[in-house]
């Protein structure tokens, strides 16, 4: 780890000003905000992140969960994962978010990790994490070692010739199904980005993972008011029974009316280069009764574009089962 200058931001403006001095907010940033530290320290120890300046934002007043005027929820960027998971409003109206958070990492890490930090959690691809290996995400143009390498855990959706790294977050999957909005304070002012647009697929620039610019600070996340009568579920499949990243996971928010799925939102984790919204599967299900036939159709639609690698072809079938079972759970079919 390189020596860095450490400072504490006393205000959002101060943090933004410090961040704006970095040429990039993406891989290779020279200024990094630290909140929980669970991703940043991990990567700094590996020399994957080498900031010259680390700005502690923990004292900023961004640690509240509040109702919004329209009945939604406003979650401060510094709200810890454990606090968010146990928040009564979240448990009541956004069960999928609570479940996703509690399925992630460990109790200790959830006490540290923040909402904003988890949005920026980096991939677990072993080649990204090892500076002795080629990785386009870490070092543009160096190549992708994961293609043809150890890729059992990696993505089958949204990949490119340049990168097949998975977004590892559970929270992000739930936020995607909940159609969250990310609120950002930047050097040029405030803006809001729907979560779907916040993350970008690797394409030819895998070092770019989201739309953040230098100086941008995620301040809070908002959720729309819960759909009346909706039920939500997070299902995570993995080798170990706990404390492990997903092989496949699914977040489902569903409203059943008159025996048919009136509205459904599905996002999946463990399979995409970003939290993956399953729009085709939603279309295949909405307006229909939930049965084996419609579920299979939805699962097929969801994974139609899947591109398996040398070791992760199983994820196509696993993701289908994950999606089908989660929809069944959310629609109380099981």
């Amino acid at each position: 780890m390189d020596l860095f200058q450490f400072s504490r931001a006393e205000s959002v403006a101060q943090a933004v000003a410090a961040g704006a001095e970095s040429p990039t907010a993406q891989q290779g940033a020279q200024v990094r905000f630290v909140a929980g530290g669970t991703t940043l320290l991990d990567l700094m120890k590996l020399n994957v992140e080498r900031p010259q300046r680390v700005v502690d934002i923990n004292k900023l007043p961004l640690d509240k969960v509040e109702r919004t005027a329209d009945g939604g929820l406003k979650i401060g960027a510094l709200v810890r994962n454990s606090d968010l998971a146990h928040n009564e409003m979240v448990q009541k109206d956004y069960a999928v978010l609570s479940q996703a958070l509690l399925s992630g990492a460990s109790a200790q890490l959830r006490n540290m990790a923040t909402t904003g930090g988890n949005l920026l959690q980096r991939t677990r691809c072993v080649y990204f994490r090892d500076t002795a290996m080629a990785c386009n995400k870490r070092e543009a143009g160096s190549g992708c070692s994961a293609i043809g390498g150890f890729n059992r855990m990696l993505a089958i959706l949204g990949t490119s010739e340049q990168c097949i790294a998975t977004n590892p977050s559970d929270m992000n999957v739930a936020l995607t199904a909940l159609e969250a909005t990310i609120h950002i304070q930047g050097a040029k002012g405030e803006r809001s980005v729907p979560i779907h647009d916040f993350f970008v697929v690797p394409g030819s620039t895998p070092q770019q993972e989201n739309v953040l610019e230098p100086g941008d600070l995620i301040t809070y996340v908002t959720l729309p008011a819960p759909a009346a009568g909706s039920k939500s579920v997070y299902l995570k499949l993995r080798d170990r029974a706990s404390y492990e990243f997903a092989l496949a996971s699914a977040a489902v928010v569903a409203t059943v009316e008159g025996g048919r799925l009136k509205r459904v939102r599905i996002a999946m984790g463990g399979v995409g280069t970003k939290p993956w919204r399953m729009v085709e599967a939603e279309k295949a299900l909405e307006g229909h009764a939930v049965n084996e036939g419609t579920l299979h159709k939805a699962a097929e639609a969801a994974l139609r574009g899947a591109k398996p690698q040398s070791e992760n072809g199983y994820k196509v079938e696993l993701a289908k089962r994950c999606l089908m079972y989660a929809v069944k759970q959310a629609t109380q079919a099981v």
């Binding site: 450490f6 630290v34 929980g36 530290g37 991990d42 923990n58 454990s82 990492a105 200790q108 540290m112």
Partner: peptide, 25 residues
Amino acid sequence: HGQCGACTVHVNGRRVNSCLSFAVM
């Protein structure tokens, strides 16, 4: 790297992995 829990301590009464936190924080 936060993968085993052997370093668990309490910070302000909550358990955390002390390996993933700078002392200066």
